[in-house]
């Protein structure tokens, strides 16, 4: 049995070291990190929209973590200042992302504050950004003969509007846009903690 005990205990010790450094230490260090001043909790509608962002898997193409100007020109693209831990205070689950098949979205609410633009873009991205490879989301909209009272009609460039009808945003689409518009971390970051800074300096 000696070998088995060495194997299992060794394997568990190495995993414990890894867990301590990648999970427990960050937990202890970040637990008391306050929200960045100016960051507001999500409203109920925004939270529903955030859930929609998760349901549709937007995170697989869009990051939410602008990098430091010394590393990459993310700020010059209008994606915002480098983010800090406090910017994610209300984020559960986190949606940092690892791909930029599309642009970073942490500040999309500041970059494209028009709800009409956002809705139209979800309905048909190529109506607003020629050459975009983002999928269209027609199933978040309804095409109706004419709008009923209270319907949110999507304004589209004429060549993309369906013939003989109007495009109406579903509740899901409106929630999603409410979330996108809430993505705005243009307020200044706190001076980052000495050892908790993003890739700066």
């Amino acid at each position: 049995m000696e070998n088995e005990i060495k194997l299992i205990s060794g394997a568990m010790v190495t995993l414990a070291i890894a867990t301590a450094s990648l999970v427990v230490l960050p937990y202890l260090q970040l637990r008391h990190e306050p929200p960045t001043p100016g960051l507001k909790p999500y409203t109920e509608v925004q939270l529903r929209g955030r859930q929609e962002y998760i349901r549709q898997g937007c995170v697989y193409c869009h990051s939410q973590q602008p990098r430091d100007p010394s590393q990459a020109p993310d700020d010059k693209r209008g994606w915002g200042r480098p983010s800090v831990a406090g910017d994610y205070y209300y984020d559960r689950p986190h949606l940092l992302g690892t791909m930029r098949t599309g642009p970073d979205l942490l500040n999309i609410g500041a970059r494209q504050p028009s709800a009409d633009w956002q809705l139209g873009h979800l309905y048909q991205p190529r109506a607003y950004t020629p050459g975009s490879i983002m999928p269209a989301y027609p199933f978040l909209f309804e095409v109706k003969k004419e709008a009923a009272p209270g319907d949110k009609v999507v304004a589209l460039p004429p060549q993309f509007a369906p013939a003989g009808g109007v495009v109406v945003a579903t509740q899901e689409a409106q929630d999603l846009v409410a979330y996108l518009l809430s993505l705005d971390r243009t307020f200044p970051a706190l001076a980052p903690l000495a050892d908790a800074s993003p890739a700066s300096k």
């Binding site: 890894a18 450094s21 990098r67 983010s83 831990a85 994610y88 890739a199």
Partner: peptide, 23 residues
């Protein structure tokens, strides 16, 4: 492998808003 591989996860967050030491 047992020792080194467990601690490489931070390389998925290079340049992100995570503690510098971890990366």
């Amino acid at each position: 492998l047992a020792f080194f591989y467990g601690q490489v996860g931070g390389h998925h967050l290079v340049g992100g808003p995570v503690p510098e030491w971890l990366v």
